[in-house]
Amino acid sequence: MSTQAQGAAETPGGPTVELTLRFDGRPLKAAPGQSVGGALAAHGITAWRSTRKGARPRGLFCGIGVCFDCLVTVDGAANQRACLVEVRDGMQIDGSYPQAEGDRQ
């Protein structure tokens, strides 16, 4: 098992299929069955939400849908929990935290 699925993620025990997402407008590879949070983390993206008061970065915290820190816009639906939503081919994902150049691959 790989520590961090890169690009065309392995799907242990399953077929190796590749999906393409658009995250903040740029294409991103993902593997079927990943959560949106899982797919973003696989690309080293750990923050996608900006807090209201301090404009601080946030990403996954509880991992199970309890904390709402991982909120993201999915196909236009605002405030979805990235840890719960499963990726789909062509999914549009928009965060509110500006991505630094270093995060881009």
Partner: peptide, 8 residues
């Protein structure tokens, strides 16, 4: 859930 880790 993902079969991968969120970091190293």
């Amino acid at each position: 859930g993902n079969g991968t880790l969120p970091g190293r």
